[in-house]
Design a protein around this nucleic acid. Structure first.
Lengths: 208, 208
DNA sequence: TCCTTATGTTGACAGTGGCAACATTAAGCG
DNA sequence: CGCTTAATGTTGCCACTGTCAACATAAGGA
């Protein structure tokens, strides 16, 4: 029940009826819920309630629950891309920066479980080449491709098809992230150790 | 409504009240549903209906929906393990067999989407070290470790910690599988090409 | 000022997982 | 054979969920 307005509304939350930036708040709350309790526990009613808003307010900002999840995935891919290029740039865009990129990937996955699980949980039905989440995902992948091409031009990496190389490397970091998320790498330290090991073996191969 | 029994029951389905092997049938039906329509579309009522059985019959064979999904995951891990050792054994337990193992992994993931999505979708809450699914998953992983150790003893693979090596290689094949499942590798042929490429780069590394 | 649009709310409905109580069959045992 | 008991399947019921339609409220331009 909406308690009667006691005094005239303050400046910052002027009305309490219109939230101001509900879409963003809902995204945040959805991510927090998934991170703490898993995707299955995400409830539109719960999100609304925790934000002090009605259960269907969401429909003014997202098409439906799928839409909310798609937005989470898209935001996740944008954040991932930012983390990747940041690591790559901050460490000199050389071999060191490239390895930092890998570490940044896994660190993102572990730190932002809520996003990551939605990004790769088969939640968004694949196919739509030009939907927001596909575009964001493609951009993140492209950051890796760009770094590979740059390394190839400096002769630091074999000059195979960059796309294939990128897929291969993406598989490695994504696989490590999944192992960590599924609790198969007990501690975060173990995850970082695996990343370091993977970087070494990635460079030199496993053949004797 | 159960239509009145017109003639005495035939031999094979003697009663129609007791199904005979309902647990197995439900597993099968659940997998089929997930494969065709995704995890979100899996409904206990739907499973029961499609099997000509009541909606709550499932509870005589599984604790709840989670239990059914856990059984799917466990069965998946057992099937995966069988596929891995079969490929490893059939191709001579050498380098060729080892690469066949990788190909078999990806082939399993692509062919059994229904199982694979449950195995790695974050559906089973991690932690329980000794639950059925954890054990089955550990066994599948162990098959890879064993193959690595055997290769190391023949001097075909660098003699690093086998566990770390196994995690690294598992990450590669799991990552490729995920890319394929999420539709990022358009055709199955493209997936196989990536596996072949990964095998080559896995051996020799990416450094120039 | 009034009208339009954006935003939030309430009521209602079908579908879902799950529990308790009941019905039906199979299986052991004299 | 008959009786008892456990296994298996069913129905009634409940709280909860996503979603839509209708309504309420606020913000902004004319």
């Amino acid at each position: 029940m909406p308690r009667p307005r006691l005094s005239r509304p303050a400046r910052k939350p002027p009305s309490r009826y219109h939230h101001g930036d509900l879409a963003h708040a809902m995204l945040q709350e959805a991510v927090r819920t998934i991170q703490k309790q898993g995707i299955a526990a995400l409830t539109l009613r719960g999100v609304g309630e925790r934000l002090g808003v009605s259960r269907t307010a969401l429909y003014r900002h997202f098409a439906d629950k799928q839409g909310l999840l798609a937005a989470v995935a898209a935001e996740g891919f944008r954040m991932l891309r930012a983390a990747l290029v940041e690591a790559w740039d901050a460490r000199g865009r050389g071999r060191e920066g490239f390895e930092a990129m890998g570490a940044a990937y896994v660190r993102f996955a572990v730190a932002h479980t809520g996003h990551y699980r939605v990004m790769f949980g088969g939640v968004v039905p694949p196919g739509n080449e030009d939907c927001e989440v596909s575009v964001a995902g493609g951009d993140a992948f492209q950051a890796l491709v760009d770094a590979i091409v740059e390394q190839q031009q400096r002769g630091l990496i074999v000059s195979d098809d960059p796309l294939q190389l990128a897929r291969y490397i993406w598989s490695v970091v994504h696989g490590i992230s999944m192992l960590a998320l599924d609790g198969l790498l007990p501690t975060p330290a173990e995850a970082e150790a695996l990343v370091r090991y993977a970087n070494e073996r990635l460079r030199t191969g496993i053949a004797q």
